[in-house]
Design a protein around this nucleic acid. Structure first.
Ligand code: SF4
Ligand code: SF4
Lengths: 139, 139
DNA sequence: TAAAATAGGATAAAATTACTCCCATATCAG
DNA sequence: CTGATATGGGAGTAATTTTATCCTATTTTA
């Protein structure tokens, strides 16, 4: 049952929530994984992806670890999800037209293209600064 | 890389596009699967789900097959996707709070709840009547 | 130079998706 | 009533993806 983020994305968000809390301090993998209840080695892999994406910064060796690489307000949910899952597709034909030979005559293709665009925009509107604010806003 | 509809959902949409085209006539599985390039036995299973969901009507025996069970305008993309994939989740905790014991203190949980709501509303706004119209609308 | 940390490749386990097979049941023509 | 032609549904298989784990290399500081 897709149309669902992966466990990995959920874990990535947890990592970033933790790092935000820690401010400028560097946090080690073990500390993050234990506090946020994420399997340790998996946490390590996720932080590697976040580092490559420039969301997080890492320092090796004694006293090293991870810290946010930019203000929480500049890290969106879209950044995080695409960093760990790769670009959002919605449907195979959206990213790669050649993946379906019905694409030229298909009357729903454009819907999935629009859906991708709208979902990305939606995810981009939430960042690690306004996530917690939104919680207290009445709906 | 989730955040993506399944092949099964894509196939289901194709089936319905075909049945819409055929109007009141009944179409057999073989006919649908060949025309829409869907594996035959899989097509059969998908049509079963659509029938159970009341989207499509079936008649057995000679001259039988499938036809739409209501106007195209009353069949939304949400109906179709949830008929084949089950309810959209977005994240495990959204449908089942007990699936994560961090839920009480989690500051992103509410975001996924809202996302589910918004995606469902979005999918509900497209039906088999306005899908093709939308195509010709300038963006 | 030793200890403490991340980096990265390879691989394994589990779950899900994508399908197939087979037989039961219904419908209709003759 | 019988045979041909459909769908219904359970069970099973194959392929792919997700969810990890292990091991070794490299970096950094004391
Ligand atoms: S059938 Fe249409 S929507 Fe489905 S994959 Fe092909 S182009 Fe995309
Ligand atoms: S950590 Fe938060 S968002 Fe993730 S599953 Fe638990 S409650 Fe949901």
């Amino acid at each position: 049952m897709p149309m669902q983020i992966t466990r990995e994305s959920d874990y990535a968000v947890r990592c970033l929530l933790y790092l935000k809390e820690r401010g400028d301090a560097f946090s080690a993998v073990g500390e993050i994984s234990e506090t946020m209840s994420i399997p340790r080695t998996f946490t390590s892999k996720i932080l590697q992806k976040l580092t490559k994406a420039g969301i997080v910064r890492s320092v090796r060796g004694v006293g090293g670890g991870f810290t946010l690489n930019r203000e929480p307000g500049k890290i969106t949910l879209l950044d995080v999800i695409e960093a760990v899952e790769g670009p959002i597709k919605v449907n195979v034909c959206v990213i790669d037209r050649k993946s379906c030979d019905r694409v030229e005559t298909c009357s729903v293709h454009h819907i999935w293209v629009k859906m991708r665009k709208d979902i990305r925009k939606w995810l981009e509107s939430y960042n690690f600064s306004n996530i917690e604010e939104a919680e207290n806003t009445p709906r």
